[in-house]
Design a protein around this nucleic acid. Structure first.
Lengths: 190, 190
DNA sequence: TCAATTATTGACCATTTGGTCCATAATTAA
DNA sequence: TTAATTATGGACCAAATGGTCAATAATTGA
C-alpha cells in the first residue's frame, strides 16, 4: 500500500553520529547532516525530527555501540580467559591506539556532549550519566576478583577517572607519552 | 590629550570569562558579552576584537588564575609545610568541593575549550595543551620526594588523568560518591 | 578655551541558521 | 490499472547572529 522507506535507518544514524562526533553540535549544520545522510531536508525531518532529536539518536547509537563495547570488554564478554586487569589494559590501550593508529582525536562523545548539549537537552544528560555509571560498574566487575568492598569501589573509580582523563588527553592533544604513562600508572595501581 | 579608558580591562575579561565558562562558546552571544562587560558593542570590539579574540582572552585569564593556582598548590607555593600527597589531596578535594559547596558543575574551562573551540582557534589548542602539561609537571613536583624516574612520571600522569577525569565527572553530573571514591583511589595509589 | 584624541552609542547590515510546507514522484495492495 | 499512501525535493521563511560604521560625547594637554 505504501511506498517503502528507501534508506536504512541505522546507517543514516551512524553517518549522523560521525558528523556530530567529528564536528560537535554547534558546528554541525543541518546541511552537513543532509549531506551525510544522503537524504533531503524534508525526509530527514519527517524521519527523525529536528537537530536536537538527531543528536539524541546519535548519542544513543554511541551508547549502544561504543559504550556498550567498552563495557563488554571490561566485563569479559569475549570469554573469561582474560583476567580483569588484562581487560583493563586492553581498554586503555584502545584509547591510546585510537590516537596512534587512527589519529583519532575526537575524544569521548559522551564528554563532548556534556559540554555541547547537556544544558539544552535533558536526554543528553541522562545518556552521559548513564554511560559514566555503567563504565564504573564495568570496572568494578573487572576488578571484583582482586578486591572487595570499599577498596574495590575506589580502585574502580580511579580506573574510571583515569580512563576519562585519558580520553580528555587524547582530545586535547596531549603527547602520546603522557597517555602511556597514565596507562602504566593505572595498571600498576591495581 | 586623549580620553582615558573608562573601564578596567582585567575585570571586563573576568566577567567575560565567567560567561563563556558558564554557557560555552556557541551559546554565548555577543549580546551576553555586552551585558556582562557593561560596555557597548562598539567599545567591546574596539577594545578586544571579535568573539574569538574575547574567548582567547578569557582562556588566558583562566590559565593565569585557575590553572596557575592549581599548579602553585601542587608545587607548594604556600610553603613547604605540606607533603606532596597532602597537596594533591587538597587539590582533589577542591574539585569535589566545587560541586558540593558551590554546586559548580561548569567543569574545567580548558577541557570545555577543547570541545568548544580548539578546532577553530589555534591559540585555544595551545592553551589547552600547555595547561595539561603544566599540571603534569606540577604533579611530578608534588611527588618528587616519594618517587623517581619512570615511577614518578607514571604516578604523576595517573594523578593528572584522575584529576581531569574527576573534572569530567563533575561536569557530567556524576554522583559525589563516585568522585570521592576516585579521590580515595588516587590517594591510595601514591 | 580649544584642538586633538579616543570612547561611546546604537542604528544598520549581510549571512546563516534551523525549520516549514507542499506539489510531485514512487511504490504497493487490490 | 488505479487508488491510497508515503517518501522526496527544494523553494521558502522568520529570527538571530556576528560584525561594521559614523556621528556624538567626553576628556585631556597645551
Amino acid at each position: 500500500m505504501a511506498r517503502p522507506r528507501e534508506f536504512d535507518e541505522a546507517s543514516v544514524i551512524e553517518a549522523i553520529k560521525d558528523v556530530f562526533w567529528n564536528k560537535g553540535y554547534a558546528d554541525t549544520s543541518y546541511a552537513d547532516l543532509i549531506a551525510a545522510s544522503g537524504l533531503h531536508k524534508g525526509s530527514l525531518y519527517a524521519a527523525f525530527g529536528d537537530k536536537r532529536a538527531l543528536y539524541l539518536r546519535a548519542l544513543q547509537s554511541y551508547d549502544e555501540h561504543e559504550v556498550a563495547g567498552a563495557v563488554a570488554l571490561l566485563c569479559g564478554g569475549d570469554g573469561p580467559r582474560m583476567t580483569g586487569p588484562k581487560r583493563i589494559e586492553k581498554l586503555l590501550n584502545a584509547v591510546i591506539d585510537a590516537v596512534v593508529v587512527n589519529n583519532d582525536r575526537r575524544g569521548c562523545l559522551l564528554c563532548n556532549a556534556s559540554v555541547d548539549q547537556a544544558p539544552h537537552n535533558k536526554g543528553v544528560e541522562d545518556f552521559v550519566s548513564s554511560g559514566l555509571e555503567r563504565m564504573q560498574r564495568a570496572f568494578e566487575t573487572a576488578l571484583a576478583s582482586d578486591k572487595k568492598g570499599a577498596a574495590l569501589k575506589e580502585a574502580a573509580s580511579l580506573c574510571n577517572a583515569a580512563y576519562f582523563g585519558m580520553r580528555v588527553m587524547a582530545k586535547s592533544g596531549a603527547p602520546i607519552s603522557m597517555m602511556k604513562q597514565a596507562r602504566n600508572g593505572a595498571l600498576k595501581s591495581i
